[in-house]
Amino acid sequence: MRIGILGSGLMADALGGQWVRAGHEVMVGGRDRLKSADLAGRIGASSGSLLEASAFGEVTLLAVPAEAVSEVLTGGPPGRFAGRTVLDCTNAVIPGDFTLAVPAMAEQVAQLAPDAHVVKAFNLAPDTVWQDAPCTFEGEPLGVPFCGDDEAANEQVAVLIRALGCTPVKAGALVRARLLEATAALAIGLWVDGADTRSLFPPKAAAFGTVHP
């Protein structure tokens, strides 16, 4: 798969590097061309401008700070994301009180790129988790929830999740992405306070009862 990455920070590094190692073709494009070229060289990708990266592949990873999303998505010709899958991994979390600066970031992305197929994923864990992928916890691979409205785009993202050795978890339509974003804000605050978020949810059988044939 051909993947254009908008951004040259830690998430671009972690996810882009994993996808290159999995055999995908990646182009990194950031606001700082030198930084983008340096990252591309380190992970074995090609580099270009934001416009070149947005036009490069079937999937475009949006990996810039939340406050830069509008500038990055609107700073080019209209319709440049038409028919493309835009993978949004951003979190608009306010440091300190760990609340959301924007209640529905993925929906804003969809408004800024109305012809794209937006899918929310990879926002519930920091870059270090993706750098270390594949990850297993208690013998099970890490589940990665994703939200999107277009089935073909969802399947592309599921392929990219599996490329990291993780399990895709379909979490519903894009309108439910705001729940993933709120979950990220909650989890980050708990992690900072030293809590283990994996201990917060009971197994399915305990939550809903064991189903017998």
Rank of each mutant, 00 (worst) to 15 (best):
H212F: 10
M11C: 10
A158Q: 07
V20W: 08
P126K: 02
Q108R: 15
F208P: 01
L190E: 03
L186N: 06
F122Y: 05
D97E: 13
I43H: 01
P65R: 02
E155D: 08
G189K: 02
A55G: 13
T99H: 14
L6D: 10
P126I: 00
R21T: 03
T197Q: 08
T128A: 13
S199Q: 13
M27E: 02
M27T: 05
G4S: 06
A14E: 06
L174Q: 07
C89G: 14
D32M: 00
P202A: 15
L61W: 03
W191T: 05
L87W: 11
L100K: 04
A66M: 00
S47Q: 00
D88M: 07
E52I: 02
G48D: 03
W191H: 15
P78H: 00
G48Y: 06
R42Y: 00
L34C: 03
A173E: 13
P114M: 06
V159Q: 13
A37Q: 13
A82L: 04
V169H: 03
V86L: 15
A153P: 06
A173W: 01
D149T: 11
K120I: 06
V192I: 13
S54T: 11
D150E: 13
G165M: 07
A182Y: 01
A12C: 12
A195E: 13
A206L: 11
T74K: 10
V69N: 05
L6E: 04
C135V: 15
G76P: 11
F98E: 05
D38I: 01
A22L: 03
C89Q: 10
S47D: 14
P213R: 06
E107D: 12
G23M: 09
